[in-house]
């Protein structure tokens, strides 16, 4: 199930996103949280240290919209680009905003 969360800045979107993700994880679901911001802070709301947050690699566009070069599998994509947070939620940083209009 894919749940999108939108809202203008200041509405509390990221805070609620983190709490929603945690709530699903507490119910035993495997939760992947994807932050599409170029200045991501969802990871911090999930309990990741700022230093670690800054090192979360950004998922390349070729994997977000394409199939990559054949060397990456769905499991290895999560292993390579996903970071497990203290909330038991895996965070993925996708798409810088500078890329957003490029399609």
């Amino acid at each position: 199930m894919k749940l999108g969360v939108v809202g203008k800045g200041g509405t509390g979107k990221t805070t609620l996103s983190a709490l929603l993700a945690k709530s699903y994880a507490e119910r035993g679901r495997r939760v992947l949280a994807v932050d599409t911001d170029s200045n991501p802070n969802l990871a911090q709301n999930l309990g990741l240290d700022l230093g670690v947050t800054d090192e979360v690699p950004v998922l390349p566009r070729s994997l977000a919209v394409g199939l990559g070069d054949g060397t990456v599998t769905p499991a290895s994509l999560i292993a390579e680009y996903g970071v497990r947070t203290p909330s038991e939620v895996t965070i993925l940083h996708a798409m810088r905003v500078s890329q957003a209009g490029a399609g």
Binding site: A75, A94, M95, V97
Partner: peptide, 28 residues
């Protein structure tokens, strides 16, 4: 590949759509 990872590796995928719906629909 991301779609496959979402389907196979997660029960719930939550997307914090900072760039907005329109941007994501075009290239996300």
């Amino acid at each position: 590949l991301l779609g496959a990872a979402i389907d196979e590796e997660a029960d719930v995928t939550l997307v914090d759509m900072e760039a907005g719906l329109e941007h994501l629909s075009r290239s996300g």
